[in-house]
């Protein structure tokens, strides 16, 4: 039996007996609030409570993501077909430039599959980051109108990208089959690889969402950062080959090998391309993949949560 609530209501009863002079009159606002068990409006919930709230909103997150996807192509006559056309056209453009015009195969067997996997996997991270930057700053109206854990937004946006990726993956598997790869059990490895990448992307999107909500210049800056990252991720060329050919400082060496985008790309290549063997992978590749997912996932979530109460300010 809680004594606190009993005494509170005891006081209320006394107040009822003499309504003219309330015993609350002399209390400061804070003391008054405490007496009646009021809580500070808009205060940041504790971490466990926050996770619980976010989980409670999972249906909203899913519905919001799928609604955005539906709304995205609604004005185009081909509609949802663009979800397939966009990755296909992307692949065609990159193949035309890097495969045909520049001929930068650089001794890579099955360059088409190599290139397309690189592009699609990198695009997943890239678009998650871009969506994350605008997740808060682009949805202030929603944030200033309704209560929900704000992390719902970056998570929903990453989910949208994941859905797009799954469609791209279907396109990719067809292309990879056409290039002469034979389905094998190793293809199943793309499931853990993509799972880890998704966790990494959610964390990154959460972190970028907080940064993007405060630093409005980030939207302008992101394309350059992302392009640099794209070129450093071995999408069009083999990082291994570059590392072997040139004597790079150890720090560059390390950064290129630890680059999370490159790690996830190489894992999918390893899963799908027969000629892309274990020797092409950087050392401890699965440990690095798990490590990045954990660091970004947990770090991004904590970083985002720390500013939860301030996102309405814009």
């Amino acid at each position: 039996m809680s004594t606190v609530s009993d005494t509170t209501h005891g006081d209320a009863a006394t107040a009822a007996a003499s309504p003219v002079t309330s015993p609350d009159d002399g209390l400061s606002p804070a003391a008054l609030a405490e007496k009646y068990g009021l809580s500070v409006s808009g205060a940041r919930p504790g971490l466990a409570e926050y996770v619980r709230q976010l989980w409670g909103r999972r249906h909203f997150i899913r519905a919001y993501a799928s609604a955005r996807v539906t709304a995205q192509y609604t004005n185009a006559r081909l509609g949802q077909l663009w979800q397939v056309m966009t990755p296909l056209l992307n692949a065609a453009v990159y193949f035309l430039i890097f495969g045909v015009l520049l001929g930068s195969k650089r001794g890579i067997e099955n360059y088409v599959a190599y290139l397309i996997i690189g592009i699609f996997i990198f695009t997943f991270t890239q678009s998650s980051v871009l969506a994350g930057v605008k997740a808060i700053s682009g949805n202030l109206g929603l944030i200033r109108a309704l209560h929900f854990p704000r992390a719902s937004l970056p998570v929903a946006f990453t989910l949208m990208q994941l859905q797009q990726l799954l469609i791209s993956m279907a396109v990719m598997l067809v292309i990879v089959l056409f290039t002469g790869e034979v389905p094998a059990w190793s293809w199943l490895l793309i499931v853990p690889a993509l799972l880890l990448q998704s966790v990494f992307n959610v964390g990154l999107a959460l972190g970028m969402a907080r940064l993007g909500s405060k630093m409005t210049d980030l939207t302008q800056l992101m394309p350059f950062i992302l392009r640099t990252w794209l070129y450093a991720s071995g999408v069009f060329y083999s990082i291994r080959a570059v590392l072997e050919k040139h004597d790079l400082p150890w720090i560059v060496h390390l950064l290129l090998e630890l680059n999370p985008a490159a790690v996830y790309i190489d894992l999918v290549r390893f899963a799908l391309i027969d000629s892309f063997g274990r020797n092409e992978l950087p050392p401890h590749v699965w440990a690095v993949a798990v490590g990045w997912a954990l660091v970004a996932g947990i770090g991004g979530f904590l970083f985002f949560w720390k500013a939860e109460e301030s996102y309405g300010r814009g």
């Binding site: 606002p29 804070a30 008054l32 609030a33 009646y36 068990g37 009021l38 809580s39 500070v40 409006s41 808009g42 205060a43 919001y64 949805n139 109206g141 929603l142 944030i143 200033r144 109108a145 309704l146 209560h147 109460e309 301030s310 309405g312 300010r313």
Partner: peptide
């Protein structure tokens, strides 16, 4: 601000439960 949607610069709002604005337009 009372609903806790806009953070206060200074001062505080204490509420019983979660005040809600009537409106879902933004969603």
């Amino acid at each position: 601000a009372v609903a806790g949607l806009l953070p206060a610069e200074s001062g505080k709002v204490y509420t019983d439960g979660q005040p809600s604005l009537l409106g879902v337009n933004a969603a």
